[in-house]
Design a protein around this nucleic acid. Structure first.
Lengths: 134, 134, 134, 134
DNA sequence: GTGGTCTAGACCACT
DNA sequence: GTGGTCTAGACCACA
């Protein structure tokens, strides 16, 4: 078994203002981190407590996210040691597959741009500056 | 009384697949249509029943959206006649202001792209094709 | 977390005889309780179900009032825990400001008294007895 | 038949901002004018058109009020001439009876004053100034 | 025809 | 336990 890497609690960012439930934000983010290759099999997850205090949310909320990820097979429980990325979790996905994960969100924004009567170029320019500037 | 334009029920599109409640989708869409200048003061809104049947949702769901838009000052009620875009509703916003409305969504996507370890250029290419192709 | 006071369900009284909708009666009453200082920031509101059973109305009616008060910024939702008076809600208003809230109603009564050809003194005497006697 | 007096259209005042329907405001006001003795049997009512333009409301709304007052027996229709106060309409009521008509409104205000934590004296002082000053 | 209010009941999400 | 959302259906008020 290869040496184990520990993931930091700041891999997660949540926004409480959104209507999207916090536990779901966490789930989606870990899925992306795995698809992007930043979290790999046998990496140790930060503890529920660490994440909860770092994000300022209820520990039960983090625990629920972890449990659902475990049920989904992406996380595995190591008794007394915490959770790790499961051996069976998917490897880093291909670029095409990762791009496809962004499509629904981009389509939604495109629809909003149309309702705002915005043409493509200024929207692309703004997106470009956000992608690079931050 | 100056001529009045009637908006059609198909200005609205809802997706039931999302977790975002239907009435909120309607609210957001009307806000954008006003900001985009496609709905202007004193335009007549389609009736609650028209929108409800067009979208296949319960009239109360549409009514809830209309009521909240009225409380917000964007719609005005004409007793017995229906709702119209309120006189006090904002005029078409400047292009800069309309772009700003897209910023939060674009920032969210950019964060997701980073978690997926995607560089800017393929993401921009995909967005470009969505904006233009559809 | 500082100590929190819980408001009882009997802070509300509704009269079904009036044409004023129940949810609006609740809204107006809470506004007055806040202006009067009897409900303060971070006080816990009675639950929707408690109020509904205490008043004998449908929970959705109470929920509607709470939602509109939340949209107005007077109430804040605590996910899974209930509603509290929002931090941003106004403090107890000055006596002059509270008096001003009564002015429109008093003006309406004064107009009625004029139409009934009633002079000031008997009307004031009646009002005095009502204010003190009950 | 004694000489006929003509009532002016400005005996009515309506507020469109209220939830109370306009036609009902008109009905209540005429009832009070009769109880107060300012409108007496065989007085000629202002025409529907006059009242509608003076108040800026829909003629159908005034017509509805007149019709309901006729059904109630307070107004009588004189073919081709307009409406008059009916012969059978009650005479000016006693002061005690007229005062009683104000009681429900005053009780409502008293309850509001209690919720605003206002004591009797400032409220009475305000009411006094409104009754006399205007 | 228009919107508003209320009910009864179901299901969901969060803690 | 908490509130939120949606449905189906009834009744009212206004024009």
């Amino acid at each position: 078994m290869r040496p184990e890497r520990s993931l930091s609690a700041d891999i997660f960012q949540v926004s409480t203002g959104t209507s999207e439930p916090i536990y779901r934000q966490l789930i989606e983010q870990l899925r992306r981190l795995i698809a992007g290759g930043q979290a790999q099999a046998s990496d140790a997850m930060p503890s529920v407590r660490e994440v909860a205090t770092a994000l300022g949310v209820n520990p039960m909320t983090v625990s629920k996210a972890y449990s659902m990820l475990e049920a989904e097979g992406l996380l595995a429980r190591r008794r007394g040691l915490g959770m790790v990325i499961a051996q069976g979790s998917p490897d880093k996905a291909s670029q095409e597959n990762r791009l496809e994960l962004l499509r629904p969100g981009l389509q939604r924004i495109a629809q909003e741009a149309r309702q705002l009567e915005l043409s493509a170029s200024p929207v692309l320019a703004l997106f470009n500056s956000i992608l690079k500037g931050k």
